[in-house]
Design a protein around this nucleic acid. Structure first.
Length: 465
RNA sequence: GGCGGCAUAGCCAAGUGGUAAGGCGGCGGUCUGCAAAACCGCUAUUCACCGGUUCAAAUCCGGUUGCCGCCUCCA
């Protein structure tokens, strides 16, 4: 079955194709490093991680670019408030961003260009737009003349004559000629402090949209395969990127536009004023394993609004334990049995269910369903004693294969703790003496500390729950 | 006002014409010294509501209701 994606540009499910055979070039809108990223941001990054990993799973070579926006109104304002340089300020949150994506097992992109390191590319792009007649200057700032670009609105469906000024912006704040025109280059103002570049366009700093056009084309060429982001980026950001890029090059910019839906928290839009605003760090402080957060964000379809709740996190944790326990149990099998052909059937069914689902616009629910069906069917064989050691290894290999896409195991390695082993030894002695009272007391004590004991034929094992 | 999305069990969530995947939770049972894990059985005659098309609809069409998002820098 062919790989298909829902393309925001055509508003249809489309069979995926690449410009260069076997290679996918993709641009994923990255963070503005003015604060810690929140779980809504990570919902999008996890979707992009799934996309990237699945493309690789399908055998494509992937070149992914994710921008780091390290100059904008917010970064400038906050760094000035703190009295530190823009660079010092943004590098703190850039580092935090990379720590967080590592924590969530988000695979690294090939390139993470910083906006401030590509001012020259942006200036050159703006000059091209000036030359092609798409830009005009007002009081040292340069604006894009939206009326000049015929295709404006093709991504978002926005029609220019229907755009009305939003309540959030008072029109007199702007010197541009039309309310829907947008800044390519912003003239220096005293509010910018020490943040400015002296360029042929004048003294100032870039607008927001231009960086993504400049950096994506710099690393991926004028025309590339996939561009992604959150739905909120469709308009105006991505619409403007298309306008800038295509007006400058005369070529089609991107073939596939993929957008992830919003994340809400406990049924409401996440916002600081509602007190339901969470960074990754806030969640981890509550004692959740990062991979549980990964699983929750991963386990529902990217175009489906995701309701993030703490009871959902608990459910995600239980689901993961089903998989982790399954893996542990497979590793303990020592039966020496001939190959059971039913194992092949189970593996093949799961395998094709996994790829058929993901081929269908990354239908992760179907893929996980295939995985859990395998878990249940193999557990059945384990229960009936008809799964041997070699077959168990085959199953583990298939799980590792799936895990190239999912990356949900192994669990963080819990260090072996001597005091726990001591307690287990004491309990074993009690059990041998059939002193169940002591044995159970020890088990309860450990349980209170989050240590779960399991008595298996091979002895007692423990795990953190 | 314009544009777009969504409504499936207690919760999460697939399924877009052929008779409701999967996970969590719950209940009963098997195993176990007791547990845990696992297994077995049960947990939506029904897919927001009302009409229509069809041999057949959660799936298509029309309408109603409810929720949500975007509309100038928020993933």
């Amino acid at each position: 079955m062919a790989l298909k994606f829902y393309n925001t540009l055509t508003k249809r499910l489309e069979e995926f194709y690449t410009i260069n055979p076997g290679e996918v070039r993709m641009y994923t809108c990255g963070p503005t490093v003015y604060d810690y990223a929140h779980i809504g941001n990570f919902r999008t990054y996890i979707f992009e991680d799934l996309l990237r990993r699945y493309l690789k799973y399908k055998g494509f070579r992937v070149v992914q670019v994710m921008n780091i926006t390290d100059v904008d109104d917010k970064t400038i304002r906050r760094s000035r408030e703190e009295g530190v340089s823009l660079k010092d300020y943004t590098s703190r949150y850039t580092e935090a961003f990379f720590e967080d994506i590592d924590t969530l097992r988000i695979e690294r992109a090939e390139f993470y260009p910083h906006a401030t390191e590509h001012i020259g590319d942006m200036v050159a792009l703006i000059q091209k737009l000036i030359k092609n007649g798409y830009a005009y200057e007002v009081q040292g700032s340069w604006y894009y003349d939206v009326s000049k670009f015929k295709g404006y609105g093709k991504l978002s469906g926005v029609k220019l004559d229907e755009l009305k000024p939003g309540a959030r912006v008072s029109a007199d704040e702007y010197t541009k000629e039309e309310v829907h025109d947008f800044a390519l280059w912003k003239a220096y103002t005293p509010d910018d402090g020490g943040v400015f570049w002296e360029t042929p366009l004048g003294k100032g700093r870039p607008g927001w949209h231009i960086e993504c056009s400049a950096m994506s084309m710099r690393y991926l060429g004028n025309h590339f395969d996939i561009h992604t982001g959150g739905v909120d980026n469709i308009f105006p950001h991505h619409e403007n990127e298309i306008a800038q890029s295509e007006a400058a090059t005369g070529e089609k910019f991107v073939n596939f536009w993929l957008h992830s839906a919003y994340l809400i928290v406990e049924g409401e839009k996440m916002s600081k004023s509602k007190g339901n605003f969470y960074t990754l760090r806030d969640i981890l402080k509550r004692g959740y394993d990062p991979v549980v957060v990964r699983y929750l964000l991963l386990s529902s379809h990217y175009r489906q609004q995701l309701n993030f709740t703490f009871s959902g996190l608990d459910a995600a944790k239980s689901s993961l334990f089903r998989i982790w326990d399954f893996i542990d149990n497979l590793g303990r099998i020592e039966l020496d049995l001939p190959h059971n052909p039913e194992v092949d059937t189970i593996i093949e069914t799961a395998s094709s269910g996994f790829t058929t689902s993901l081929d269908d616009d990354l239908n992760i629910s179907g893929a996980l369903g295939a995985l859990f069906n395998l878990v249940r069917r193999i557990n059945r064989l384990i229960s009936s004693g008809s799964l041997g050691r070699d077959d168990a290894r085959l199953v583990l290999e298939k799980l590792s294969d799936f895990n190239r896409v999912l990356d949900i195991f192994p669990r963080e390695n819990a260090p072996i703790e001597d005091w726990i082993l001591e307690m287990i030894k004491k309990r074993d002695k009690a059990r041998k003496n059939r002193d169940w009272e002591t044995a159970d007391r020890i088990r309860d004590e450990l349980q209170k500390k989050g240590i779960m004991l399991q008595d298996t034929p091979k002895g007692t094992v423990w795990k953190k729950r």
